[in-house]
Amino acid sequence: MTVDKDLLNSFAPTGVLRASINLGNPILAGRAADGSACGVSVDLAGALAEKLGVPLELVVVDAAGKSVDVVSNGQADVGFFAIDPKRGASIAFTAPYVLIEGFYLVSSDSSIVTNADVDRPGVRVVVGKGSAYDLFLTRELQHAEIIRAPTSPTVVRTFLEQGAEVAAGVKQQLEADAAGNDSLRLLSERFMVIRQAMGVPKVRGERAAAFLAAFVEERKATGMVADALGRHGIQGATVAPLE
């Protein structure tokens, strides 16, 4: 993968690589002890900036929808997203680098036992606004009502405050939020697999999209993604197969 002036300008027109980092997904990013952003997505952003030979600037947001917005409107050059056809209107995705499971959380005394029980009249499902779960369930659920929390990390709080029937999100986030609370339980099966990918605005051109796609495959093949998951103590996510 060679980098020339035209390709560099496609990725870093301001002279730095601005990478959108979503803290709303704990598998991908979080805060270090000093308050700085850290995680798998931060590591990949740093590796891409090094590959391009430019400085890295992190554009840190707290929700997936905001991450899509800053990349789509040109405030960031690359980002880390769950692949979704709606987002694909403005963003060129790579193949996934990580696979994450989405689960439902309910009250321990709920009559909802399986995923099939969720899509019924009178059932309110709380999701993070603009998240992969929001986009997916908006298409899939025919009878249940969707309630949108401000961000994915606030889903369980919103679920409890509103007395809703179901919370939907990243399995690890739901488990952490429910830890020590015997009144909550996860359902036993995932309702979706989220394919986490990198993305670049489509207006940056096909060559930039192809370069980013090759970069992601290289990082999976060399073991960097697996190493990053291990180094950051991430469980429940798997490295996506090579394309």
Rank of each mutant, 00 (worst) to 15 (best):
Ala240Asn: 08
Ala149Phe: 03
Leu187Ser: 03
Lys5Arg: 13
Asn25Asp: 14
Ala89Met: 10
Gly236Pro: 09
Asn25Ala: 11
Leu184Arg: 07
Val42Leu: 02
Val123Asn: 10
Pro85Trp: 03
Lys171Asp: 09
Arg124Ile: 08
Asn73Met: 06
Gln142Pro: 03
Asp117Asn: 01
Val225Pro: 01
Ser152Thr: 11
Gly53Ser: 07
Thr238Asn: 14
Arg87Phe: 07
Arg18Gln: 05
Pro201Gln: 01
Arg139His: 10
Leu7Thr: 06
Thr154Trp: 11
Leu28Arg: 10
Leu48Thr: 06
Leu105Arg: 05
Asp77Glu: 04
Leu135Gln: 14
Val54Ile: 03
Phe136Ile: 15
Gly233Leu: 02
Ile194Asn: 15
Cys38Leu: 13
Phe215Pro: 10
Val113Phe: 02
Pro13Ala: 10
Arg120Phe: 09
Gln235Val: 10
Gln162Tyr: 14
Leu105Cys: 11
Ala116Leu: 14
Met198Trp: 05
Leu174Trp: 01
Ala208Arg: 10
Val123Leu: 06
Asp177Ile: 04
Met192Asp: 13
Ile194Pro: 05
Ile27Cys: 04
Val78Met: 04
Ala197Asn: 02
Leu56Phe: 00
Pro13Lys: 06
Gly74Phe: 15
Gly88Met: 10
Gly130Ala: 07
Thr138Lys: 13
Gln173Ile: 05
Val16Gly: 00
Asp117Met: 00
Asp119Leu: 06
Gln196Lys: 14
Ile100Leu: 15
Asn25Ser: 10
Ala63Asn: 08
Ala144Asn: 02
Ile21Glu: 00
Asp69His: 12
Ile147Met: 15
Thr154Val: 14
Pro55Ala: 02
Asp177Gln: 13
Gly53Asp: 06
Lys51Pro: 13
Glu140Phe: 09
Val113Asp: 08
Ser152Met: 13
Arg31His: 00
Val16Tyr: 04
Gln173Gly: 12
Glu206Gly: 12
Ala237Tyr: 00
Arg190Met: 11
Ser67Trp: 04
Leu187Asp: 01
Leu184Tyr: 08
Thr238Trp: 07
Asn9Thr: 07
Ser111Ile: 08
Val59Gln: 01
Ala168Ile: 01
Val125Gly: 02
Gly24Pro: 04
Met192Leu: 15
Arg185Gln: 04
Val193Ile: 14
Asp182Trp: 10
Ala164Asn: 12
Arg157Leu: 11
Val125Asp: 01
Gly169His: 01
Val61Arg: 06
Asp109Ile: 12
Ala214Asp: 11
Ala29Asn: 01
Ala63Cys: 03
Asn73Ser: 08
Gly223Thr: 02
Ile147His: 13
Ala92Asp: 04
Pro241Met: 07
Tyr104Met: 06
Arg219Gly: 06
Ser10His: 10
Asn22Arg: 03
Ser20Val: 08
Val203Trp: 15
Asp119Tyr: 08
Glu101Thr: 10
Leu58Gln: 02
Gly205Trp: 02
Gln235Leu: 11
Pro26Ser: 13
Arg157Tyr: 11
Val166Glu: 09
Gly74Tyr: 15
Glu217Ala: 09
Asn181Lys: 09
Val123Glu: 04
Ser20Glu: 12
Ile146Cys: 15
Gly233Ala: 05
Val16Leu: 08
Lys5Val: 13
Val42Asp: 00
Phe136Tyr: 15
Arg231Val: 05
